[in-house]
Amino acid sequence: MSAITSTAPAEARQAKRRKSGSKFPNGFWGLIGIVTFLGIWELVPALGIVEAAYLPPASEVLMTLFADLALTAFWVAVGETMLAWFIGLAAAVLLALVLGLVIGMSSFLRRATNSTIEFLRPIPSVALIPLAVLLFGTKIESSLMLIIYACFWQVLIQVLYGVADVDNVAMQTARSYGFSQIQRIRDVIFPTMLPYLMTGIRLGAAVALILAITAELIIGAPGLGKEIQLAQSGGAIAGMYALIVATGLLGVAINLCMRIIEKRVLSWHASVRGENAA
């Protein structure tokens, strides 16, 4: 017994060290990583390993990116991409939430739809690209169709898991206290489902960006992807790389925002509370 208690502080110290990195904070190492990466990128074309015409040095690309940041056209493209991203994600979440609740709450519907869902889910959304072109051409609706299809399944599956996870005792208690259907959804099912739903939305947000960019790149719907395609076919190689870096930064920003929102919304939930305490 005493042996166990005596190791506890040592373990805690070790855990602390593990968390913060050995001598320097993790942020410092991360910065070194970024600088090294940019340094290699700078050197590869400078040493002639890859022709600078195909891979401009990092400094040139970053300068172009900064120049882009001052242009209205750049922000218009970002806005168009984000608009498709947001509408598509919101529509998919709403649709999946409603259908997920309806299907998840009835064991009959769950069993009846299982095979169809398992069959439709792995169909790649890009298979719909030709259909989208035929129906909507290069308008934003093309992007929306792909985004909604891809995100819908991500969110629906999570909602179904979430509804299935509802505690039977809690449900029966609610029933015997005479909770109405709406009360049961709001006070019993929703809190259980929320962590799952947030996971679904977080995954869906990343997928939505991928498909927004894909639709713009392949179909030519307005947005960053189309600008990349135009830069590439116009031979503005540094511009193309700058836009690609911008797309990646947009992705990082979306991931970070989603994680923050998830933490806020689930601040009451054990999984998040545990993380904060540790």
Binding site: I210, A212, G248, V252, I254
Partner: peptide
């Protein structure tokens, strides 16, 4: 970590 996070967030079609 930061470099990999960037590449993960980069939509692969680009």
């Amino acid at each position: 970590e930061p470099v990999f996070e960037f590449f993960r967030a980069l939509p692969p079609p680009v």
